[in-house]
Design a protein around this nucleic acid. Structure first.
Lengths: 214, 214
DNA sequence: TGTATTCATGAATTAAGGTTCACGATGGCC
DNA sequence: GGCCATCGTGAACCTTAATTCATGAATACA
């Protein structure tokens, strides 16, 4: 039984190594390297072995997406749950998400926006939806306590999510060194802008933030 | 020469018929029907004939995208150029774009959000960029005359474009119920919200708009 | 009318990876 | 140690459309 546990552990480790290899390949050069044969080589297993752990390529990448996304959604969820005004939580959530995305720029781009196969693209929608759900909760809280304008929470959450996502990865996405002051300023701009959509009263601190980024 | 002109005309017509067939196929059932053989049959020509007019499948759909998109960008551009406050132009532009998109839901969904082949997806970026460019011009105008907060125009345009595009995806999705009254209300919500990001002073009329959609 | 050129055809070819599978190796169990 | 179940292997197989091309028809022009 003790030995069986070791064996099981190896299975889990191999699966993890394949997932890691897949994530790394995408983080390094995007979806063009997301080929089973390449991933297998990178993970140090045979092509066929990948199919001992995953039903299909789509299944593999759905799990890669889940792995990375769940962490990000959890981070945002924690901020959403935090004490403080809905306005502040909203700005914090977007700012934090943005900074984290900029840190893993290539991977974030791949997971959010890079053209990829339809099947993988479809899996991304779940991630986006999960993120928008967190924002929607915050929006409801802000509306309930009068901080935000009264508006359909789902539409508002879509707008907010779309705004910061597009600004982060869109064609006009700013290129700045991760963790640099410039990157932080951009994240602040984005967070400030996106959150402004909902504020019932203009946020005085935004002016300062916008000056920093200008 | 007169006969040669007729012949030339037929060539142009055939090309147009193929483009139309491609657009209609996508408008009817999305990218899964975007196959050369199907398009050819729909246009009443042989499969190979498509390649007399287009270099490749990607080329064909790039032209379909251009055809449809240029019209939409032109509509937005006209509104951007129009008299009036930048705020009003911005709301009008987004509202009009949204209403037009909802009118041709299936096509708009395919052109904006539906998972599709990477090569076609890449072509969509040009459209998005062209649209964002129009918004950016408006943002600069609004900043210049003091209507909008002072912020990097490209970041702001990305946020605005991302906001209304993302918000449209849900309502445009084939599974969403088409309802034109609700569509107008949603378009108003989206336009009001997205524009609010930039307003220096809260727009009093948004409250009314938000009530309509709530 | 003869001939060259262009255009249309659609079955056959290609391409590119995902997926399978027959076989060998390894570990667990008695 | 012998046997069974599981896992690893990677070359061969498939699948799915895009793309090509040899052939024939139609047209322009002399």
């Amino acid at each position: 039984m003790a030995i069986a546990a070791v064996r099981l552990n190896q299975l889990v480790e191999t699966k993890a190594r394949i997932l890691d290899a897949a994530r790394e390949a995408v983080a390094l050069s995007g979806w063009k390297d997301a080929q089973i044969a390449l991933i297998a080589a990178r993970a140090g297993v045979a092509t066929g072995s990948v199919y001992r752990y995953f039903d299909s390529k789509a299944d593999l990448y759905a799990q890669v997406l889940a792995l990375v996304s769940e962490r990000e959604v959890a981070v945002v969820a924690a901020i959403v749950e935090a004490e403080g005004s809905a306005s502040q939580c909203l700005v914090d959530a977007i700012y934090t998400f943005s900074v984290r995305a900029m840190r893993g720029r290539r991977l974030a781009y791949a997971l959010i926006a890079e053209p990829c196969e339809p099947e993988i693209d479809a899996a991304r929608l779940k991630y986006r939806a999960a993120l928008a759900d967190q924002i929607a909760r915050l929006v409801r809280r802000g509306i309930a306590n009068g901080e935000f304008v009264e508006i359909d929470a789902n539409v508002a959450a879509s707008c907010v999510t779309g705004a910061f996502m597009e600004a982060l990865v869109g064609p006009l996405a700013p290129e700045a060194a991760p963790d640099s002051d410039a990157a932080k300023a951009i994240a602040q701009s984005i967070a400030g802008l996106a959150a402004r959509m909902l504020f019932r009263h203009a946020a005085p601190e935004l002016t300062r933030i916008s000056r920093v980024s200008a």
